[in-house]
Design a protein around this nucleic acid. Structure first.
Lengths: 241, 241
DNA sequence: CCGCTCAATACTGTCGACATTGCACACCGT
DNA sequence: ACGGTGTGCAATGTCGACAGTATTGAGCGG
C-alpha cells in the first residue's frame, strides 16, 4: 500500500490528473500549470497520500521536462502538500489524525479574532452576502452535495475574516483552510451536524450584525470547538500512509 | 530609491550576504545554501526591500548557475520573503505598516490558545526553562543587546506553544514569527517596554504554572495587545520601498 | 537460509544553451 | 516637441545532458 507502484499503475492513478492538466496547460506556463494541477488534485483528493513517484514520472505524465516539475514540487513542498520520504521518494503529504485535531485549535483561535473584527467592521452588504452563503450551504446540504457544502463552509469563514478587514489574518486562515480541505467533508456528514452548524452560523451572524464583539467571538469559538468534538467522536482514519 | 541599481552598487550591497554564503556552501547543496543564505540575510535585515535584482545577478554573486538560484527564489516567494515587482524585477518583499499592525491581531489569537494549552499541559521542567529564557532576556536587555532580546522573546513564545503540545499551532506561530523578525526589535526598545514585557511574561508563567487556563489566555492576549499599542504609538516607518 | 558486499541502475542536482517574451530606447511622423 | 511605432536587448522559462549519489538486486560467504 505504501510501497512504490509500477509505471502502469501510476499512469492509471494519474489519469484524472491529466484531465485537470489539459484544461490548464493552454493558458498558463508549464511550471505554473503543473503546480496548479497538482495542487488542485491534492486538495480535491484526486491525488492521495499512498503512491510514491519520481520527478521524471510526473514529467512524462505531463509531457514536459523535469525543470517545471521540479519547480512545482518545490512550491508544493513549501506548502507541505508534498513530502519526501526517505529523502528521495516523493508522495502526497500525509495528514495525521493528531494533526487534524490540532488544526481545530488553531481555527478556534483564528476564527475567534476574525469574528471579533467582523463584529466591529462588517458592512451591511457583507453581512447580507454572508447570510446568502449560509443559505446556499443549506441548499446544497439538502441536495446532499457535501463536497460543495464543505467548500462553502470554508468560504463562509473566509468571508467573515474578509469582513473583519485584516488581510494578514485572512491569508493565515486561507493557509489553514487549504489543509482542512484535505480531510473535512466527513465532519459535516455526521447526522444532525449540518443543521447545528448552520444554526451556529446564524447566531454568529446575528452577533456580528449587532456589533456584539464578545458574543461573536464566543459563538465563533464555540462553533469550532463543536466541530472538533464531532471529529473527536469519529473513528474514521485518514487516508492510508 | 526604488529603481534598479547598478552592478557595482549591487555587489557592495551583497558583500555581507556573500560572507553568510561562504559559511554554508561547503556543507549544503547549492540550492539549499542559496535559499538558506538569502533567508538568513532577509530575516536579519542584512538584505532590505530597496534594491531590485535579477536571477542572473544572484547567480553571479554566488558563483552558481541560475538553476539553484531559481529554486531558492521560488521557495522564498512561497514564504513571501521575496516578491516580483512589475512581473519581472525581484526584490525583498516589503512589509507595510498596515500589515505590521495586522500581524499583532493574529499573534493575539495564536499566543492566546498557546497559553491555554500550556496551562493545561506544561511540565515543571518546561516551565523552568521558560523562566530561564525570560531571565536571559532581562540580562541581554541590560546589555542593551536588543537583537538578541527580540530573538529570545520570540523563542519564549515558541516554547510556550511547544509546552502546549500542539505541533501545528507551533508551526503556524513560527511562520508568523518569521515575519515578525523583520520589523520587531524596535518595539522592545521603547523606554519601559522591556520591563513591562518581562513582568507580563512572569505573570503568564505564574498562570501557566498554576494551571489557570482562563487567566493564562487573558494575560497572553493582554501582553500582545500591549505590544500592539506600543507599535501603534510609534511613528517609525518600515524600511523604504 | 540469512546477511553482507559490490556492481548495475535509477534518480537527483546542477549546468549551459536556446527560444520566447516583455521592456527600453531610439526613430519616425505629425 | 510629443506621441506612437518598431527594433534591439535583456531577462525569463524551458529543455536536454551530465556528473554525482542513493538504491536495488545479484552474487557471495557465513
Amino acid at each position: 500500500m505504501s510501497v512504490p507502484v509500477s509505471k502502469q499503475e501510476l499512469d492509471s492513478l494519474m489519469q484524472p490528473v491529466v484531465d485537470l492538466w489539459n484544461e490548464r496547460k493552454t493558458r498558463e506556463g508549464s511550471s505554473d500549470a503543473v503546480f496548479g494541477t497538482l495542487r488542485d488534485a491534492i486538495l480535491t483528493r484526486t491525488l492521495v497520500p499512498g503512491p510514491q513517484f519520481a520527478e521524471e514520472d510526473l514529467a512524462r505524465t505531463f509531457g514536459v521536462s523535469r525543470t517545471p516539475v521540479r519547480e512545482a514540487i518545490l512550491r508544493l513542498e513549501a506548502e507541505r502538500l508534498i513530502e519526501r520520504r526517505g529523502g528521495r521518494r516523493l508522495s502526497v503529504a500525509r495528514i495525521s489524525p493528531t494533526e487534524i485535531l490540532e488544526i481545530y485549535d488553531v481555527r478556534v483561535a483564528l476564527d475567534g479574532v476574525a469574528a471579533e473584527l467582523a463584529a466591529r467592521n462588517a458592512t451591511p452588504p457583507q453581512i447580507a452576502q454572508l447570510r446568502w452563503l449560509n443559505n446556499q450551504m443549506i441548499s446544497f446540504a439538502e441536495a446532499a452535495d457535501f463536497a460543495r457544502v464543505s467548500s462553502l463552509s470554508l468560504e463562509f469563514h473566509e468571508h467573515i475574516a474578509e469582513a473583519g478587514g485584516n488581510a494578514f489574518l485572512l491569508s493565515q486562515i486561507r493557509v489553514v483552510h487549504d489543509r482542512v480541505r484535505r480531510f473535512e467533508r466527513s465532519t459535516l456528514q455526521q447526522p444532525g451536524r449540518l443543521g447545528t452548524a448552520s444554526n451556529e452560523h446564524e447566531l454568529l451572524l446575528d452577533a456580528i450584525e449587532a456589533g456584539d464583539v464578545a458574543r461573536a467571538a464566543e459563538v465563533a469559538r464555540g462553533h469550532m470547538l463543536n466541530a472538533k468534538k464531532i471529529r473527536l467522536g469519529m473513528t474514521e482514519v485518514p487516508p492510508p500512509e
